[in-house]
Design a protein around this nucleic acid. Structure first.
Lengths: 224, 224
DNA sequence: TTGCTTATGATAGTAATACTATTATATTTG
DNA sequence: CAAATATAATAGTATTACTATCATAAGCAA
């Protein structure tokens, strides 16, 4: 079977020069994913990245104007990829209920590699999103960046899943709150399982996180 | 009516010298709360704090070994205060159901000033916790800090509310996941209302956040 | 071939940050 | 009054997150 020849398109305010357009650009993306995960975002620097790919710091700056912008780009790429899986997974489902099931599944399941995108390791990228994405939201610049559409994809995913919820129960009052609670909650649980196991429920594995949130949504919207 | 003469006790690994023990210490706490909220944690520095209270940077370092430690201290203070409200609010409630109601209320309600603690503005501190506390969790040092008991209070709150949930429904399988989902979700919603209103449900106010999470918990544990 | 453009490399420099260290002075306590 | 303690004043350092400049190499167009 062939892979679908697709490319994820990112808001061009999120880079100086499109990293998908050159070899060096792709190296920057793939190596920065590895390095941010390895060092954590604070210890990650363009200098270290440059050393890792054998290019000077200044070359990296030709693609991203700051390490903050690079992180926003990566997170945006991640959510665009999730959106693609979401749309792909829910299209052609017969019932709204089944659509919702699949959607929650996709938002809460463990990540697997997607070989359609060679320079991106989605498994590691997911860890970065879990660990670092709040740093992108919680900045004094958030309102300006929101204006520029940096969070458009994230908001669109919330919207899409909310719409499915309303198909199942048109009277449910808080679909957006419910969806964002599940999206963030699932990531948070992944983090807790790894680092604060005492506040997760014993013998926890990712299956249970999925089960928990699926059950939660269905009960809350009275679809069970 | 008199205030209760109480003091919140913080793990002594969270400071070099107890800030509650001196005037300068208390000034450091109250001014840093204001400044972190005003500037955001990244732009906040001990130098600026020093200027604001008329003391040199080096004096601040005698209380906290780093700005990270100060933030952990503040967040820990906040959760200790919440725990105190939680224990106070649930004691002497007749039914477990009512206890749970109060507990969720406390975890999701908007914050009011508590004049028992003069040098702490809880309303501003709550904003800091909402905006910055993930930065405390998402560090490479988290496992070491967890070992030192930095997150003990947070975990204890999860435990307390989980216990109440189990009183209401002893068969519920995931009380910890549910509680941490609510705790983090409520903060997240407060943030979204302010900064990403498009993904909150129209005409949202904090009352609705409380209503949403109370309803969510009761339904999920089959108590409704 | 020459010339032009574009991508990258090599190197230097800067203001700010997050601390550390040292010495002096004021205050408290025994 | 001496000794201990708390704070002030000041200086210094390695690192960070950039910015700037100039040289070189590759690609293509006439």
């Amino acid at each position: 079977m062939h892979q679908l020849p697709i490319q994820i398109i990112i808001n061009d305010g999120l880079f100086v020069k499109d990293p998908e357009s050159t070899d060096l650009g792709k190296k920057i993306i793939s190596k920065s994913i590895e390095l941010i995960e390895e060092l954590g975002f604070e210890a990650f620097t363009f200098k270290k990245l440059g050393q890792a790919i054998g290019s000077p710091e200044s070359s990296v700056y030709r693609y991203f104007e700051s390490k903050h912008q690079l992180l926003v780009y990566l997170i945006c790429w991640y959510w665009s990829w999730v959106e693609y899986k979401l749309v792909f997974g829910t299209v052609n489902q017969q019932s709204s209920h089944e659509k919702l099931n699949v959607a929650i599944q996709i938002l809460t399941e463990p990540i697997h590699m997607d070989y359609s995108f060679e320079h991106v390791n989605e498994v590691i990228l997911n860890k970065i999103v879990v660990a670092e994405s709040t740093k992108v939201f919680h900045t004094k610049k958030i309102d300006a960046e929101n204006q520029l559409g940096y969070f458009a994809v994230y908001k669109r995913i919330v919207q899409r899943v909310s719409d499915i919820i309303l198909e199942v129960n048109p009277d449910f009052k808080y679909p957006n709150m419910l969806v964002s609670t599940v999206m963030e909650g699932a990531h948070q649980q992944a983090f807790f399982v790894e680092h604060l196991p005492t506040i997760t429920d014993q013998a926890e594995c990712t299956d249970q996180v999925q089960e928990f949130y699926t059950n939660l949504v269905m009960k809350v919207i009275d679809a069970i």
